[in-house]
Design a binder for these strands. Structure first.
Lengths: 112, 112
DNA sequence: TTCTTATGCATAAGAATTTTATGTATATAT
DNA sequence: ATATATACATAAAATTCTTATGCATAAGAA
């Protein structure tokens, strides 16, 4: 209850941005980080996350590195060079979307 | 080209918000208004808009009124009472999403 | 020590929303 | 005449997400 929904299309950008900041992360870590950063408002489901990671990898935007910690598997993802470039584009797009929405929704707000 | 994409799920909220502001609008007018307000960044396609309007109407959030101007058909939509209440909710949800995204994407920004 | 919760991955079926491609029709500008 | 703008509509396909499963190990609670 009470958790604002995830707008479709934003997940990939969230993933890319987190990886840009954190260097490398594994799937479960991403779900927890998003929960933490948004105070529980956004919850990334596994059914959305893992296919998204696989697709980003297939597109050449992410590299994987498998590790075993405490006898449990972890797949660390990090941006490729193409991924870094694409992250810049996607973020610009998202910021543009946010600005557009603010113009529509609440022109009184300003971003600084 | 170069038009930033419409995040899925935001279209309904955009429609509701515009109707809240403008009182009543017809479909084509909505597409033009969004183009204008976002300086061409968001383009509402007809294939998305008309089904969305029909659905909002079916949900009881919109009322329709048909008019004929210059021998051309126009369907004016306006919020019902239920629509007005729902608009408040959807806008709150969208603002929450925007804030969450800003926390993820650029914590330096502030909304005032 | 058993049961639940947390950690960690994965996929498949279905739902929701959008894009793209059409189709119809009138008005206006070139 | 022809193209563009106005104005509606729907259907097929694509995209992206939710929900429901499934497997497996670790840690904490009862």
């Amino acid at each position: 209850m009470g958790n604002s929904k995830l707008y479709k299309g934003s997940l990939n950008t969230i993933i890319l941005k987190l990886l840009e900041e954190q260097g490398k992360m594994y799937g479960y870590e991403i779900t927890q980080k998003v929960k933490e950063l948004t105070k529980g408002e956004l919850k990334i489901t596994e059914g959305a996350l893992y296919p998204a990671l696989h697709k980003l990898e297939a597109e050449g935007l992410l590299d994987v590195e498998v590790a075993k910690v405490d006898n449990r598997l972890r797949k660390y993802y990090k941006l490729t060079e193409a991924g870094e470039k694409e992250t810049v584009n996607r973020l610009a797009e998202l910021e543009e979307f946010i600005r557009s929405m603010q113009n529509l929704v609440n022109p009184n707000w300003s971003i600084e």
